[in-house]
Design a protein around this nucleic acid. Sequence first.
DNA 1: GATTGGCACTCACAGGAGCAGAGTGCCGAT
DNA 2: ATCGGCACTCTGCTCCTGTGAGTGCCAATC
Lengths: 338, 338
Amino acid sequence: MSEERRLEVLRAIVEDYVSTREPVGSRVLTERHRLGVSPATIRNDMAALEDEGYIAQPHTSAGRIPTDKGYRLFVDRLAQAKPLSSPQRRAIERFLSEAVDLDDVIARAGRLIAQLTGQVAVVQYPSLRRSGLRHLELVPVGGRRLLVVIITDTGRVEQRTIDVTALPDEATLAEVRARINVAASGRRLAQLPGAFAEASASLTGADRDLVQAVAAIVAETLAQESEERLVLAGAANLARAGMRFEHALRPVLEALEEQVVLLGLLTEMAAESGVSVRIGHETQLAGLVDASVVTTGYGADGDTIALVGSIGPTRMDYPATIATVRAVARYLSRVLGP
Amino acid sequence: MSEERRLEVLRAIVEDYVSTREPVGSRVLTERHRLGVSPATIRNDMAALEDEGYIAQPHTSAGRIPTDKGYRLFVDRLAQAKPLSSPQRRAIERFLSEAVDLDDVIARAGRLIAQLTGQVAVVQYPSLRRSGLRHLELVPVGGRRLLVVIITDTGRVEQRTIDVTALPDEATLAEVRARINVAASGRRLAQLPGAFAEASASLTGADRDLVQAVAAIVAETLAQESEERLVLAGAANLARAGMRFEHALRPVLEALEEQVVLLGLLTEMAAESGVSVRIGHETQLAGLVDASVVTTGYGADGDTIALVGSIGPTRMDYPATIATVRAVARYLSRVLGP
DNA sequence: GATTGGCACTCACAGGAGCAGAGTGCCGAT
DNA sequence: ATCGGCACTCTGCTCCTGTGAGTGCCAATC
């Protein structure tokens, strides 16, 4: 009983199950794949694969389906790249390059992935912490409030208001604004509070308080979990026939709405390089036990500033999903780049 | 056969059907409501209501359920206000006032409505056109590009870049910025292009071109359909038991993802004053034939700058949904107000 | 030792029959 | 106008059975 053939059988089971959505038996396996052996032999291999936990039987008299462990092995060792066609690539590039602003880029990336994979797309906004500062603006509003507008080099705009004891005059404001922008120039947002502390050292009185207030609000903004925003697209795909979710949609939809938890998962996945895949229980989220998540980072010059990905049933077409996610991430990086 | 009693029967059918989710028959109607007549009499009333199109029978031997027309009559003439409890009101107020910025306010409003109605919430961002301008900022970025940041008095921030032939120096920029902000002060965004035209009349050369470029980009931003953004919350509620959607979720989810179409519906509804209700086919959206939409406007001092609402099955608790939507809109207006 | 054909066994599932229950429409009486 | 009674309809449930797919095991073969 050769080890090789057993892996071949596993691959065949995964591919057949993914395309037919039906448990696959030993007979159809020999019919659809050139394995060169009889069903009885396959049965022996299957029994071994089942012992090792790679496949399972939904019912006693049904065929086999891959387990999470089986998909894992498939993804790690058996999956073959399934590159996108060049018209597809061009379509991705064109559609992304038509975007008018960051919101639009993100939304378009989501729609692309949702449509190409037929699953749910998830796109993370560029991390504020890891973005560079393009400009910081101070705008007086109303009586004693100052609007702080932070513009990153990825095009993200965040705004917060701070209360001041007295509204500085225009000259002071210009001075402080200039100082802040000089101090911040070329830095990552995460480094700003420190940079501002230095800048404020050479100041006195109200100016100093103002710079410190700005430093505080920036630090607070970065600390907020909501600084990481994400966008989903294609939720309707979950309800498509053959999604395997039809009758247990609720937990999945709920998991997707728990953006904080979902962000936690993405953050974990961001630690891995390249395309990262979490299969079923590996997501550690109860709502996603029957789902898999495929993500990869994007950002100018290989710098990961956020993730894009696709979420679908564990029974998804991994090679195609991986290829799509990777391609969209690549073009996304290009569009956002300089 | 009194007209009054017939309406009373319709009300009873709507209320029972909404709470039990089962077609209601003549017997249970007499048991649960003090109608003072026998089931046989009710049957006559029911037959009349069915002739008039207010109720229908799903199967020959089943009870009656209201039709869209029946719900319409109920909403227009029979529904009694169902005010929220004061702890509920306080919870809404507190939760909204904890928001840190506009995105957060909108997101919180959505979560509130989703949770209180158990349905899907839809919240529209304040319309750019109808918002006032708080500040317009010009920031040089890179070689020959200028970032135009528009900040509205509702806290919305939009940004676009424009290409310029030559980057103006800081003094020119300050001059132009000052002129623009003076010209724009106190105006609605929709009026800006006109105001800028006036302002540019007294200018010459590069300054004039710059102001006109800004006017153009503002006009373009306002013209874009994406200027109307909206946020959904509580999609997972659609999959809840008894939603009547369980097995036909797809069209509903799809309709909700078609934000452009959804915005069209909201825009129509915005024309009506007070709380606006669209029942079933009245939405004119194929995906929402089994759904109803309840919306109302919000905005400082009775000025509608956008809508909030709830989307659920036609078989929803209209009085409760209307009360919730109205309450959230009221507090939302207050939080966004001066 | 690996492979194979044969065979008995297990189950899920579809189809059909039968039954109970809910609800209606109609009719004649009040 | 209202009501009680009654025959009739139809859905939904349960029970039953037959069928087919698929397995595991065993003895024979390469």
